[in-house]
Structure formats: structure tokens, C-alpha cells
Simulated scan of single mutants.
Amino acid sequence: MKSLPGIIVLSFILAIPVGGFVFGFYMCKDCGWNVLGRAFIGCVVAWLTTVTFGYPPKNEGGVGEPYNAWPYIIVVWAFIAVAMEWTRRNSDD
């Protein structure tokens, strides 16, 4: 990726599922220190966040107020965009 607008668009596309994973990993209530359980919940919420565009449901039935994963998505978007831009500037092209 050679241009900054391309990096911004690509990092946004990547940030939605990755931000959902971070949100699910962090918000798992019954996981305790079970890292595998947290990773599984993170994968499920990553998919749900992508499908619902940032608002995964709070329970299995999908009723009630959904969660808002956008704060996590925005932070992940910033990290991915900075990392991609830093990699682009430090490449040997």
C-alpha cells in the first residue's frame, strides 16, 4: 500500500473485526483467567461486530440494547493505521 488514503481505508476494514475481537476478549464476564475461553468469545464477537457493524447483541437472543464496540474499533483503527504507515515509511522501496 503506497498511499495514505489507501492505508486509512484498509485499516478501517481490518479494524472492525479486530476491534470486535478485542471487545469480546475484554468484555467476557464469565471467563476469569481462561484465555482460551476469552479468545473464543473474542472470535464470536468479532464476527458479530462485523455483521452488526459495531453493535453486537448483549445476549444470545439478540433482544434488548446492543453493546457499542465503536470505541474499541476506533482505537484499533488508529493502531493499525499508524503501524501500516510506519511500515510503509521504513520499507526499503
Rank of each mutant, 00 (worst) to 15 (best):
residue 1 M to D: 08
residue 2 K to M: 04
residue 3 S to W: 02
residue 4 L to I: 12
residue 5 P to S: 02
residue 6 G to C: 02
residue 6 G to M: 03
residue 7 I to H: 00
residue 8 I to V: 11
residue 9 V to W: 00
residue 9 V to Y: 01
residue 9 V to Q: 00
residue 12 F to M: 01
residue 14 L to Q: 01
residue 14 L to H: 01
residue 14 L to D: 01
residue 15 A to K: 02
residue 18 V to Y: 04
residue 19 G to M: 05
residue 20 G to L: 01
residue 21 F to N: 05
residue 21 F to I: 01
residue 21 F to D: 06
residue 22 V to E: 00
residue 22 V to W: 00
residue 23 F to H: 07
residue 23 F to L: 02
residue 23 F to M: 03
residue 25 F to W: 09
residue 25 F to E: 08
residue 25 F to H: 03
residue 25 F to R: 00
residue 28 C to V: 02
residue 28 C to D: 11
residue 28 C to Q: 05
residue 28 C to F: 10
residue 29 K to P: 06
residue 29 K to I: 03
residue 30 D to Y: 07
residue 33 W to T: 12
residue 34 N to Q: 07
residue 35 V to A: 13
residue 35 V to F: 11
residue 35 V to C: 03
residue 36 L to Q: 12
residue 36 L to Y: 13
residue 36 L to E: 12
residue 37 G to H: 04
residue 37 G to W: 02
residue 37 G to R: 07
residue 38 R to F: 14
residue 39 A to Q: 11
residue 41 I to Y: 15
residue 42 G to C: 11
residue 43 C to L: 15
residue 43 C to R: 10
residue 43 C to Y: 13
residue 45 V to W: 13
residue 45 V to F: 15
residue 46 A to H: 11
residue 47 W to Q: 11
residue 47 W to D: 09
residue 48 L to Q: 15
residue 51 V to F: 07
residue 51 V to C: 02
residue 53 F to R: 08
residue 55 Y to Q: 04
residue 55 Y to L: 00
residue 56 P to W: 02
residue 56 P to I: 01
residue 56 P to E: 02
residue 56 P to V: 00
residue 57 P to W: 08
residue 58 K to F: 04
residue 60 E to A: 13
residue 63 V to S: 11
residue 64 G to I: 07
residue 65 E to I: 12
residue 66 P to C: 05
residue 67 Y to L: 02
residue 67 Y to F: 14
residue 73 I to V: 14
residue 74 I to V: 15
residue 74 I to D: 12
residue 75 V to F: 10
residue 75 V to N: 09
residue 76 V to W: 07
residue 78 A to Q: 08
residue 80 I to L: 15
residue 82 V to E: 09
residue 82 V to F: 15
residue 82 V to M: 14
residue 82 V to C: 12
residue 83 A to M: 13
residue 83 A to H: 09
residue 83 A to P: 06
residue 84 M to H: 08
residue 85 E to T: 15
residue 85 E to R: 10
residue 87 T to G: 11
residue 87 T to M: 13
residue 89 R to C: 10
residue 90 N to A: 13
residue 92 D to R: 06
residue 92 D to S: 00
residue 93 D to Y: 10
